[in-house]
Design a protein around this nucleic acid. Structure first.
Length: 580
RNA sequence: GCCAGGUUAGCACAGUUGGUAGUGCGGCUCAUUCGUAAUGAGCAGGUCGGGGGUUCGAGUCCCUUACCUGGCUCCA
């Protein structure tokens, strides 16, 4: 008797669901039904539109079929036998053609009278599947291609028994509480309104405090690393975007043109402007401000540059996918001699920056030259090698996507894992051989001649909006002290302690902390509860006793009641925590 | 863009077979001045997302539109 894996149970549950749906509805065409990370799904094509109201009926049928406890019987068949078995099932027959083309063995699994072509493996008999619950329904293109027909995909989960099922449901609710959109509301961090437009985020005061903390850190570190910070316009004339090529290859992603009338009377003409989807052309203008010498290089321009992209309907998602966002962008212009060191420094910089935010598990992906590409092959070679060297020397594990680079240059993408183990792509280091060519970028070398510099585009956090969303979920809204919007809340036990509370607040603010006072008429318990729900790292309780003794009573989010201490000692404690 | 489901007070939600809206939290007022996770009472707050239709009558039914959610596709 072999061990039954969760995958086998999920996959087998998918079969049972297919069988149930075929039993309950007419003219069902089945496609595929694999196990997923947390359950399974099955794609159907049938005249009846399946809705959540059908779930109980389908679940009951699945339960009935499982109760029969029939064995799953594997059988290898010839192509012709398979064809006969799958007669009338057009998707299955198409899939069969693929299997035949691969030349592998064709296997079928039968449960009772239900037979399906399937690689397996499955459970041995139906009762091993356990309890099945259907969770949601969604459309899904056949073979994932939007040109194909949309099938009905039904998702489900599997549990050993009802008790485990309840636990799974409870865990899903727990995950929902971490959802940055939910926490964004509860903690008053950001809002996206219908009136302003979809995908356009507003940073509320508490969210803005976090953003300021991130940006201040970001700026300091960029200056330390030898970057210069620039600020550039949000719109540019159409000529700029023609030169950059964006109107050629990125127009779909841009907001439509703004027609601006310039000049008067007979001299009037219409100038087209576009709001920027990328910062690169503007940083190039900064580079071209004056003639550059090899002695000026490398030049590193960084900007928290807000860009706008026309995202298609149906792809927006909280802060993760918006239409207006701020890239932590930078462009490095350097000589061929400098490129290896620059890339190495950049990768190391990314590692440090991400580490500061609690992300230490970083996976890198190297994408190399695609078939269709612009730029000198020797430069591609050198650039790609510099990316490899940087990853090797930084000791970062990476995978190579051969031919996966953009047409204008090779790149490294960096993915982190959050507290729930979910991967997120944040940083990218990307060569660009296209723009230096199009804008005719040059520097004067030590030979007195003009040369084309290397141009590297890089982001460490991706976009501030998206990164904020990831941080919210990573920390479940309980930001570490250095990021917390409200680092300390002072809780006077009654109005009588209000003056002292304000004094404590002023002193802590003067020491550089973000501090608020709860001036409500509530009792202490209610104030503690409110501050706790807002996930404030430190609560400072003050009453007449504290005032008389010139002390404060401190309660931390992590360790609860810390007892009374002197204000300078508390400040020292906070400072120590910030350093750590 | 496609498929499905949603949109009711600031937030979370109820709202029977169509008969002109409720609960909790929050807010405000008053009382209480309180020592480590919810003090009490009272009050206010809603064009039921927008538009159109069916009907004597629509939060409830139909059409349409915007937005949201979950997927597919795409992506920072």
């Amino acid at each position: 008797m072999s061990e039954i894996s969760e995958q086998q149970r999920r996959h087998s549950a998918a079969h049972m669901m297919a069988r149930a749906v075929m039993n309950l509805f007419d003219d069902v065409q089945v496609d595929i039904g694999p196990a997923t990370d947390d359950g399974f799904y099955y794609d159907f094509d049938l005249p009846h539109r399946i809705t959540p109201e059908d779930f109980p009926k389908i679940e009951a049928e699945i339960a009935r079929l499982i109760a029969l406890d029939e064995p799953f019987v594997r059988k290898e068949v010839s192509a012709d036998e398979a064809k006969a078995l799958l007669a009338g099932q057009k998707y299955k027959l198409e899939r069969l053609a693929d299997v035949v083309a691969d030349g592998g063995p064709i296997s079928t699994y039968a449960v009772g009278d239900y037979v399906e072509m399937c690689r397996g493996p499955h459970v041995e008999h139906a009762k091993q599947i356990g309890v099945v619950k259907l969770t949601k329904i969604a459309g899904s293109y056949y073979r994932g291609d939007e040109k194909n027909k949309m099938l009905q995909r039904v998702y489900g989960i599997v549990a050993k028994d009802q008790k485990e099922l309840d636990e799974i449901v409870a865990r899903a609710e727990e995950a929902k509480k971490r959802d940055h959109r939910v926490l964004g509301k509860q903690l008053g961090l950001f809002t996206i309104t219908d009136q302003v437009g979809p995908g356009l985020a507003h940073w509320l005061p508490r969210g803005a405090r976090v953003r300021v903390a991130i940006e201040e850190y970001w700026r300091r570190k960029h200056y330390e690393a030898g970057y210069e910070i620039v600020y550039t316009p949000h719109v540019g004339k159409s000529n700029l975007w023609e030169t950059s090529g964006h109107l050629g290859f990125y127009k779909e992603g841009m907001f439509p043109v703004m027609k601006v009338q310039e000049g008067e009377g007979k001299d009037a003409y219409v100038q087209d402007y576009y709001v920027k989807p990328m910062n690169c052309p503007f940083h190039i203008q900064c580079y071209q401000f004056e003639k550059r010498s090899y002695r000026d290089l490398p030049i590193r321009y960084a900007e928290l540059g807000t860009v706008y992209r026309y995202e298609k309907d149906g792809v927006r998602h909280g802060l993760f996918r918006v239409r207006g966002f701020t890239q932590d962008d930078a462009h490095i212009f350097c000589t061929p001699d400098q490129i290896v060191q620059e890339i190495k420094d950049t990768v190391e910089f990314a590692k440090k920056m991400l580490g500061k935010f609690g992300f230490h598990d970083i996976q890198a992906y190297l994408s190399t030259k695609p078939a269709k590409a612009v730029g000198d092959p020797a430069r591609w070679e050198q650039a790609t090698q510099s990316l490899r060297d940087a990853l090797d020397q930084e000791g970062m594990s990476y995978e190579v996507d051969e031919g996966g680079g953009a047409f204008y240059g090779p790149k490294i993408d960096m993915k982190i894992k959050d507290a729930l183990g979910r991967p997120w792509q944040l940083g990218t280091v990307q060569f660009d051989f296209n723009l230096p060519e199009r804008f005719n970028l040059t520097y004067v070398g030590d030979d007195g001649k003009e040369h084309q510099p290397y141009m590297v585009h890089r982001a460490l956090l991706g976009s501030i909006e998206r990164f904020f969303g990831i941080l919210i979920e990573h920390y479940a809204g309980a930001f570490p002290l250095w990021l917390a919007p409200e680092q300390v809340r002072v809780l006077p036990i009654s109005d009588k302690a209000m003056d002292y509370a304000k004094k404590v607040q002023s002193a802590l603010r003067a020491a550089g902390f973000r501090v608020d006072v709860d001036a409500s008429a509530e009792k202490l318990g209610a104030k503690i509860r409110a501050a706790t729900l807002m996930k404030v790292p430190y609560q400072v309780v003050v009453g007449p006793r504290d005032e008389a003794a010139e002390q404060i009573s401190v309660r931390s989010r992590a360790d609860g009641d810390l007892g009374a201490m002197k204000l300078p000692d508390f400040v020292a404690r906070l400072r120590a925590e910030l350093e750590a």
